[in-house]
Design a protein around this nucleic acid. Structure first.
Lengths: 150, 150
DNA sequence: TCGGTAGTCGCAACTGGTCGCAACCGGCGT
DNA sequence: ACGCCGGTTGCGACCAGTTGCGACTACCGA
């Protein structure tokens, strides 16, 4: 999937500076991990990886930084249909929203960008007079492989 | 909103019998609360109400029963965009899926049934060859009242 | 270069949800 | 009507995430 032009990869830190958010040792470590992550991370993995860059990073700092990123719309928080317990997963927000599909059998996560999703959000804006800021569509079911032939 | 014909209200207990799920004192209390609930309940409210019917009901039994109902597709679990902390909300599943919109300012929850949502799920089934079993679409933003005029 | 201060951090205590285990009981077979 | 047995329960310990607080520090102005 090509990266959208509105967003340069690896530049969460630049966003912080632009918005006048204070940069700290710990945040630098956490952001670096998020920037270089290739998969959906949960908070515990993020903590472990960040601590390898800066051992002083605390659990609560990770959560606070995630909340901060969420509030600024720089990351998305996912349940992935609670495939593995209650935890959440986080991913950098790059351009367009996408749907997450979680296979209830093999646990694979698939992402899907759809114009229909964008139209649906516009319909909500219009029909419900509701200003849409965040949206999350998660689907649980069986992926092409697990649902077998046909 | 009229009730769909495929589902008779107040009959969670009948579903249990049909599917050969064992009925216990505690489950009866919990189901009765769910059947008569008019709003989205969280686990703690459900526990309190159930304990008024049967004082022996334990916290973990409530969670286990909710998981059971979820697995059988009889209820939906909602985050409501984590408007009030981390907790989840539960509601009986009656007929068609609907979108939940949470106002980030006043906290009001609005529900919206949309053909576009159904079409979107069909598109996922077709384009991704993914069998859709559960789906959850939650939107956070500002409701008509809170976003002010226009 | 050097304070002052608002914003951030680490820690420890707390809430929401899960798990392992031994005791218990619903409902079928006789 | 009774007993058996596997599913269910309550309990206490645990994991995930949040909060309050005192100590610390990034960064602005001088």
């Amino acid at each position: 999937m090509p990266l959208p032009q509105t967003e340069v990869p690896g530049r969460l830190q630049a966003h912080f500076a632009e918005r006048g958010i204070r940069m700290t040792q710990q945040r630098r470590a956490i952001l670096r991990v998020m920037e270089t992550a290739t998969k959906h991370l949960d908070a515990a993995q993020l903590l472990r990886k960040a601590q390898r860059l800066d051992a002083s990073v605390d659990r609560s700092t990770v959560y606070r930084t995630l909340r901060l990123l969420k509030r600024h719309g720089l990351i998305d928080e996912l349940d992935l249909m609670h495939i593995n317990g209650e935890g959440h997963y986080y991913e950098r927000k790059l351009g367009r929203d996408h749907i997450h599909m979680a296979c209830l059998r093999c646990g694979k996560i698939t992402e899907f960008v759809s114009d229909g999703f964008e139209r649906l959000k516009q319909q909500v804006e219009k029909d419900c007079r509701f200003r849409v800021l965040i949206s999350r569509l998660e689907i649980g079911g069986y992926c092409a492989t697990c649902r077998g032939p046909q």
